[in-house]
Amino acid sequence: MKNPIGNLNKIFDSRIRLGVMSILLVNEQISFNDLKQLLQLTDGNLASHLSNLEENGYIRVYKGFIGRKTNTTYSITKAGEKAFKEHLQGLENMIRGMK
């Protein structure tokens, strides 16, 4: 018997990381401030989740400038897209299994 929650990714247990991935899947590139606004988080909280996703190779970081202000943007990687879709499939399987 296959473990029904085997497809679920531990990294996406966090609602915030799940939110970041959902947003990045439908937006080619998004800035730190837009993410902060959408998820209604503080700088520090969001930054720690983002670096976690980056370390796992799920998102890519671009550091740029608008005038003198730093403008950091993020995009999803191929690996991130794959992992997130598998996680979604896992969730779906779980719901089907429960019925």
Partner: peptide
Amino acid sequence: TLQDIKRMM
């Protein structure tokens, strides 16, 4: 969770 994801997207 799925509804959360959908809403965020």
